[in-house]
Design a protein around this nucleic acid. Structure first.
Length: 775
DNA sequence: TTATCTACTTAGGAACTACTGG
DNA sequence: CCAGTAGTTCCTAAGTAGATAA
């Protein structure tokens, strides 16, 4: 079975399987497949997947209802160009004109949502406008619950669909290069604001970092404008973090063996954390309860009346909590508004930081409240108590000349103050669950610091476009290398390139058992002769990846060989890990790492799909085209979401409505026929007489109703189609916004139809791209 | 070389808000 | 106006990857 096809030039596209479980390779319309061969020339820059065929793919999350997706193809490339893109200081771009004069004011960069204008707004805000409704549909998910154990769905099989359908390609639109800008420098204006700052090179303090790093390959990262290597800012002013309120005992008593128990506030607090989760599916996980019990018991004390969880009844607390929630919901809008305003007032100062004179939003300035750890998948630590973080746990990073934020909790103080301008974090604390890890406070996505690095990410991916052909040629050559390590590197690179797999760092035993490419186990990849590989594993967030792919014979053989003599739980790539792999990739292109392939694959796919001919479409149709492309990318990257609990009910309702409308049409048609003969309409079903309309009016009504039906059918289809696909993740993290912006400009689609307010703020750096930009 | 630290990106789901059509 | 859903934002877990230490 192989569904392959002949053409290879067509981009591959991943398609979702209609019926998840069945799918077979249809013979007829095969997909492109091919064994490529070696290289060659023509093929080149096209996404790998387009070169090889894939059979199918499906994914499912374990335990949730996630159906599978199928894969099918990929994309095609484009011309190349390199570009220059600017390194102009973002801030200078964004800040639009207005800021010119205002000298001593702070510029404000992105405030997405609530920007409350009230106070200070810096001078300019970028012109973002507002939004309108974007288009994708999504489904909501109701509440938790539903436990269930993982269902394992059967791997799907393949179907190959052809993809021809949609559009074929189009001439190249114009490609130009982007503007070049030069980099000017940045911050010129910076330092005017805020007190002085000028810390030049940082360092200092306790652990100072080293600044210099030399580069082996090109220069690693970016150097911010003016300063030395690795310097991320010259002046940084912020207010620190805000803590959750202290626990307020509610006094509601839970039951132990049917009797109310007195708990100290501390004990009650933890009991409440558990009670509140009674309606989640964590309750069906023994590990969760076990971990919770272990930690709670420490607080109760060995000799407490409560000796086991099973005899505990948290219902009273749960119910109290529900009623509190209800109460809150019932508040009038004004009350809610007032409350919100108050909170805002309190938090306002924490929301902003001033970086090199520009006011920027802070991402997460709220310290995480205590709670029970909600690990995903089968996490060994789920249910453990995540203790309250206090000021003495927190390290603040701030400009040397900035005032040290006042500790919001009287009588306590920060753990440490640093002035490290080689990093971007404003504060961090040790994660109480995994004490070796940290939780950081960073600037928001709309900040220029983040924007700059986002742009660099895409530029790197674009650079890969220019090297991909050589890389493919090289690894193809190594599929048969007698050096096992080389062979493994070649095959792993191939999988990352073709399937957009994640790198797969090693994980500890106290984390959920998930894998990525380098950590695939023998049991995760099953060869099925003649050349199909069946993948089935849990990836990031324990999202299941299932896919059947036709691969080149040498790859197939190599995989078989890597598996021989091993157990199912052994590493497939025993000679490999992410650092070796990345070290190898860096020899092929400066700065290249495994994750770049995902960005490249996603963006090139979007660019390709959007650049096929779409003339003559109106805005709404174009938005659909975009969503379709977005969906393909989401499938390639395996971005899933669980099906809303009410999904099937919603579908049923939609169907009923459609049927109703169809009946209406029928009735109208009957009336129309009668009207044409001059007869009055029949009585309506409930016996009431209807207005006697003329044929024209009836016809119009019929047309309107039919249009309505069509729209509903379309909506229904999209909804079903996207019920397990998460479009947002790729939009936020993988698709070069310049592709989208340029396409919107070319097709006169308002950018607000595609990017919401947050995205507009995050991608402010891409708004002035030339319409002819190609990834 | 491997293990550990450190910093930063990517991710899904919950909570919240806005919108729609009845 | 109201409910229900679509869309947005918040939250924080879970990855990647480079640098350092062992």
């Amino acid at each position: 079975m192989n569904c392959s096809s002949d053409e290879d030039d067509k981009p591959l596209v991943f398609r979702r399987n209609p019926k998840p479980d069945k799918v077979k390779c249809s013979s007829p319309p095969p997909k492109p497949s091919l064994k490529p061969s070696n290289d060659s020339d023509s093929e080149d820059d096209k996404p790998l997947s387009s070169k090889f065929s894939t059979v199918s793919k499906g994914n499912t999350n374990n335990s949730k209802n996630r159906p599978h997706m199928n894969v099918s193809t990929a994309h095609k490339p484009r011309v190349k160009d390199e570009d220059s893109d600017d390194e102009k200081p973002l801030s200078s771009k964004f800040i639009s004109k207005p800021n010119v004069g205002s000298v001593n004011k702070v510029h404000q960069n992105g405030s997405a949502s609530r920007d409350n204008q009230s106070k200070n707004i810096g001078i300019n805000k970028r012109p973002l406008d507002n939004e309108r409704s974007p288009g994708q549909s999504s489904i909501k998910k109701p509440k938790p619950s539903d436990s269930s154990t993982p269902v394992n769905r059967r791997p799907v099989n393949l179907k190959a669909e052809t993809k021809s359908d949609d559009d074929d390609d189009l001439p190249i639109a114009q490609r130009t290069k982007n503007q070049a800008s030069s980099s000017s420098k940045q911050s010129s204006s910076k330092q005017k604001v805020i007190k002085k700052n000028s810390s030049s090179l940082n360092q200092t303090n306790k652990k100072s970092k080293k600044v210099i790093k030399e580069s082996k390959y090109s220069k690693p990262s970016k150097v911010p404008p003016g300063s030395g290597e690795g310097q991320k800012w010259s002046s940084l002013v912020h207010s620190g973090v805000i803590f959750p309120p202290a626990y307020k005992p509610h006094g509601v008593k839970m039951l132990y063996k049917g009797k109310p128990v007195d708990l100290t506030p501390e004990q009650e607090e933890v009991a409440t954390m558990f009670a509140v989760m009674l309606d989640t599916d964590y309750m069906s996980k023994p590990k969760f309860k076990e971990n919770f019990w272990g930690d709670w018991r420490k607080i109760l004390g060995k000799n407490h009346l409560i000796q086991n969880l099973d005899d505990c009844d948290f219902k009273p607390i749960y119910e109290w909590h529900q009623s509190e929630k209800e109460k809150k919901k019932q508040m009038s809008t004004e009350e809610k508004k007032a409350l919100k305003e108050e909170k805002m007032k309190l938090e306002e100062k924490y929301m902003w930081a001033v970086v090199d004179g520009v006011k920027e939003k802070v991402g997460n300035f709220r310290v995480e409240p205590p709670g029970l750890f909600r690990g995903r998948g089968e996490h060994p630590k789920m249910g453990k108590l995540k203790k309250r973080i206090r000021p003495s746990d927190i390290t603040i990073n701030i400009g040397k000349d900035a005032p040290i934020p006042e500790c919001p909790i009287p009588g306590e103080s920060w753990k440490e103050i640093r002035h490290d301008n080689t990093v971007t974090w404003l504060a961090y604390w040790n994660d109480p669950i995994n004490t070796k890890e940290f939780k950081y406070v960073f600037l928001a996505a709309s900040s220029s610091l983040k924007g700059q690095s986002d742009k660099e990410k895409y530029e790197k991916a674009r650079m890969l476009k220019g090297h991909i052909q050589g890389i493919r040629t090289a690894y193809t050559k190594n599929f048969g290398s007698k050096d096992v390590t080389k062979r493994q590197v070649a095959v792993a690179t191939y999988l990352i390139d073709k399937l957009a797999l994640r790198a797969g760092n090693e994980k500890d035993d106290d984390e959920a058992d998930t894998v990525g490419c380098c950590t695939l186990k023998v049991e995760n990849v099953e060869p099925s002769p003649p050349n199909i590989l069946k993948f089935d594993f849990l990836g990031k967030d324990s999202i299941r990846y299932q896919n059947e792919v036709e691969v080149e014979l040498p790859v197939f053989k190599a995989i078989q060989q890597f598996r021989t003599g091993k157990q199912g739980s052994d590493d497939l790539f025993d000679k490999l890990d992410t650092s070796k792999l990345n070290a190898h990739l860096k020899e092929l292109m400066p700065g290249l790492t495994a994750k770049v392939f995902r960005t490249y694959n996603a963006s090139i796919t979007l660019d390709d799909m959007l650049s096929r001919e779409t003339k003559g479409r109106d805005v709404a149709e174009n938005v659909v085209v975009y969503q379709h492309a977005n969906k393909e990318v989401a499938i390639i990257c395996n971005h899933q979401r669980s099906v809303s609990k009410s999904h099937s009910a919603q579908m049923t309702r939609l169907n009923e409505k459609i049927d109703e409308l169809k009946d209406v049409v029928k009735e109208l048609e009957t009336d129309l026929a009668r009207a044409k003969k001059g007869k009055p309409p029949l009585k309506s079903s409930d016996g009431k007489p209807k207005r006697n309309l003329n044929p024209e009016a009836l016809e119009k009504k019929i047309a309107q109703t039919k249009a309505k039906i069509e729209k509903m059918e379309r909506d229904k289809e999209t909804k079903e189609d996207l019920k397990t696909v998460a479009l947002g993740t790729s939009k936020i993290n993988y698709l070069d916004p310049r592709i989208t912006v340029a396409w919107c400009k070319r097709h006169e689609v308002p950018i607000e139809k595609i990017f919401n307010k947050s995205l507009l703020a995050k991608f402010a750096w891409s708004m002035d791209v030339d319409p002819s930009f190609r990834f």
